[in-house]
């Protein structure tokens, strides 16, 4: 069942696609815009940009790939407002990352992953689960988590890295087992 009616013009179509792909777009920006306070702004400005250029969108092309290009430009623009320690990677690195098909291929799985994240986080060891919850549910930095749980920051880094790897394996397994696709 399709809830959203087919667009009757390019602007409406592009805006609907943006909404449908918002998790992936936000993920893309979250990864490449280390200053989390600017993520919403960049997503919003990307929305504006794709709206302005809606007529240029070719439905035969990947919407995500098309939109990521605008998002990258907005990230570059926003980087001027960013403090040095949280500035994005260099422009040419962003270009290289965008040209890697892996960006679209990986981020397109975000909606599927969200279905199983509760289960996969639940399968973590208690302390690893706690660290993941602190970092992602409460937006705490590893150094802050280390203070809270009495670990060293390096230990939290390692635990978080392992937890992410375990979660990814779990997600892949569940998605493969159910044979789901978007």
């Amino acid at each position: 069942m399709t809830l959203l009616t087919p667009p009757d013009d390019s602007l409406r179509r592009v805006q609907q696609l943006f909404i449908e792909h918002s998790a992936q777009i936000r993920g893309f920006v979250s990864v490449l815009m280390p200053d989390s306070s600017l993520v919403d702004d960049v997503v919003q400005e990307t929305f504006m940009a794709v709206s302005t250029r809606a007529a240029d969108y070719d439905p035969a092309r990947s919407f995500l790939a098309w939109t990521f290009g605008f998002a990258r430009n907005k990230i570059m623009e926003a980087s001027r407002k960013t403090r040095r320690s949280a500035r994005p990677l260099a422009d040419e690195v962003l270009e290289a990352l965008l040209c890697t098909d892996a960006a679209e291929a990986d981020l397109s799985l975000t909606p599927l992953r969200l279905r199983y994240l509760d289960a996969c986080v639940g399968e973590l060891a208690p302390q690893a689960r706690r660290i993941v919850e602190y970092c992602y549910q409460r937006a705490m930095k590893p150094a802050e988590v280390a203070t809270v749980i009495g670990w060293t920051p390096a230990s939290v880094h390692v635990a978080l890295s392992r937890a992410r790897a375990a979660i990814r394996l779990c997600l892949d397994a569940k998605i493969t087992a159910t044979g789901e696709s978007l």
């Binding site: 998790a23 979250s30 975000t110 992953r113 549910q137 937006a139 992410r164």
Partner: peptide, 10 residues
């Protein structure tokens, strides 16, 4: 990619 999904989940 996993991080991005976790951000949304969080």
């Amino acid at each position: 990619g996993t991080h991005a999904a976790l951000v949304e989940w969080g």
